[in-house]
Amino acid sequence: MARAAVSRRLTWRAATLQEVRAETGSAHTLVFEVPGWAGHLPGQHVDVRLTAEDGYSTERSYSIASAFSDRDDLVELTVQRIPDGEVSPYLVDVLQPGMRVELRGPVGGWFVWRPADTAPVLLVAGGSGVVPLMAMIRARAEAAVRVPFRLVYSTRTPEDVLYADELRRRALEDRGLDVTVVYTRRVPDGHGRPPGRLTAADLAEWGWPPDFEPSVFVCGPTGFVEAAADLLTDAGHEPQRIKTERFGGTDA
């Protein structure tokens, strides 16, 4: 139909789960195959819709974890199980390779990093807020650009670190990428910094100074994002250069 051909509205499409990777005890990365996937920017998200046999349906938004590659039609989502959640326990515990869900996306044009951007980048993650920031780190490597990146990642314990092995590897191999993990409850053996919330001193030591005019991306739970954004503006970062993405206290 000609009308359908010119319509640029977004619609739901089928996605087949191809592979599952356990990231932590409560988070899995789900690799979906989406035929004809036209690409996405790091920081964009997709909506996932589940429909029960009785027709009841519900949807949630998830950040895309993977960088787009034109070599395949894969989209990776990292989903943290929220025990009382409606959607995440199904995605983490029930969905098996070969099963399908509906996806709508990619969407969101605000909280995105573009490989053509030349400003240094500071990524500040709280918990599973690291997911879209990981997509940016992966997209930087995929595009083979040398824009300096720093990730400051706040999480509870060493067991809660998402992408731990990959972050360790990239910190060594991806030139111009620095990774710092800040633990709020318990630190690994031999770690110098005592456990505690992200502070101004952490951001001063591991982030970029405001004079470098970095692009700053902050993602995490609402309270974390507001606290981190305040620390950054107090340190002299221009609010216009700080992009934030919150996920509420609800089933994410």
Partner: peptide, 18 residues
């Protein structure tokens, strides 16, 4: 609880071309 306006991206892209 509230979430970001970013969560409007999907529903709005069903209505708008951008």
């Amino acid at each position: 609880d509230y979430v970001d306006g970013s969560s409007l991206a999907g529903p709005m892209r069903e209505l708008f071309a951008v």
